[in-house]
């Protein structure tokens, strides 16, 4: 018995050291915002609350296994006593204390994380199958990824609060940057908002965390936190790119366009002015919906025309009312700038 209790103590000690080493071996992300820092701290607070629970259960289990094992030749019967109500009441009270503490710390952190940051950059981020786009609302340009071709790259100035409105027009997605220790769903029909202030320079990989279909595992993006100067020059560059015009010849009063792999096969369409024209859309994406909308410009101040959604595979023809001569912008409203182009309305060339 003596021997057993000594080796039991050693066993318990080894188990304790092992589990502390295992659990606290620096596994959680290094936070890059004050809110992430709070969540990071909460992880360790819960660890310290959970550890006693773990030790009590595993400790008693080990003691039972060693001390209360049946020994060969022992035919006596163990005590046949059941617990009294007082002890059983204690079983309820123990866990209640742990959860009350967990609740207190958890709610305090939650309040901090949900508290809006001071005003700063406004971003409208849209998840779509299977990329991201971000409208820099204050600057009037959009960065976007192209499905299976390139990921969205968004830059943010360090130490400036970012306010995000999160949207989706197809299925549920989830904006997730591990180093922010944060994720939030982009839900069709229900915009979500959140804010954070990145306080560390660097390049961070983000992802869609909510399973969203075929290429979910490719739905990544890059978040670069840069100096304010670098950000200003990046904004200037992106604005220039987005305002550079594409042109194409006006061919008549009928155009065709195809959608496949979440892309249009044409970046520019030309049609005759002041005359209704025929628009034929073929959607080759099985099970995926697209539509076709015509706007004044990528800023989408005015919408001239929009088709209903067409779920692929399908081919449909629409008659678009007459438009005045000029340069227009078109996109699929579900996939946004990732599926957009220029519509030239004018006189037939040649």
């Amino acid at each position: 018995m003596r021997l057993w209790s000594r080796s039991l103590k050693q066993l318990l000690l080894v188990a304790l050291v092992l589990c502390v080493a295992l659990v606290s071996s620096g596994c959680i992300q290094n936070p890059i915002s004050a809110k992430a820092q709070d969540i990071h701290r909460l992880f360790y607070i819960i660890l310290w609350l959970a550890l006693p629970v773990f030790l009590v259960v595993w400790g008693s289990l080990l003691i039972c296994v060693v001390r209360f094992r049946h020994r060969r030749g022992d035919t006596s019967e163990p005590r046949q006593t059941a617990g009294n109500n007082g002890t059983i009441a204690l079983f309820f009270i123990g866990p209640l204390i742990i959860i009350t503490l967990s609740l207190l710390f958890g709610e305090t952190t939650l309040a901090k994380v949900e508290h809006p940051d001071p005003p700063g950059e406004h971003l409208r981020i849209t998840g779509f199958q299977w990329e991201w786009s971000a409208d820099y609302v204050d600057h009037g340009f959009t960065v976007t990824g192209v499905t299976n071709k390139k990921s969205m790259v968004m830059e943010l100035p360090v130490d400036k609060p970012v306010h995000v409105t999160l949207l989706s027009h197809d299925v549920i997605h989830e904006f997730y940057v591990p180093q922010l220790l944060f994720m939030k769903n982009a839900i069709p029909g229900h915009p979500n908002t959140f804010s954070f202030t990145p306080d560390k320079l660097g390049t961070f990989r983000g992802r869609c965390a909510q399973y969203c279909g075929l290429w979910h595992s490719h739905m990544t993006f890059v978040m670069k936190v840069v100096t304010p100067e670098a950000f200003a020059s990046w904004v200037k560059h992106e604005k220039k790119v987005s305002s550079s015009a594409t042109t194409c010849p006006v061919t008549g009063s009928s155009v065709e366009i195809e959608a496949q792999h979440i892309q249009w096969n044409k970046a520019c369409l030309g049609v005759v002015a002041n005359k209704p024209f025929k628009l034929q859309i073929e959607n080759k994406d099985v099970g995926i919906a697209h539509n076709f909308a015509i706007y004044d410009s990528p800023k989408r101040k005015h919408q001239y025309y929009v088709t209903p959604t067409i779920t692929g595979p399908a081919k449909k023809t629409f008659i678009v009312p007459a438009l005045k001569p000029g340069t227009y912008y078109f996109q699929c409203n579900i996939h946004g700038p990732a599926m957009s182009g220029t519509l030239i309305v004018g006189q037939p060339s040649g």
């Binding site: 959680i28 992300q29 992430a36 709070d38 969540i39 909460l42 992880f43 819960i46 967990s102 710390f105 958890g106 952190t109 939650l110 901090k112 994380v113 989830e174 997730y176 591990p178 220790l181 944060f182 994720m183 939030k184 965390a209 909510q210 399973y211």
Partner: peptide
């Protein structure tokens, strides 16, 4: 704990 869940959900 919701705040913690934001980091590990999904």
């Amino acid at each position: 704990s919701p705040a913690m869940d934001y980091a590990i959900h999904d």
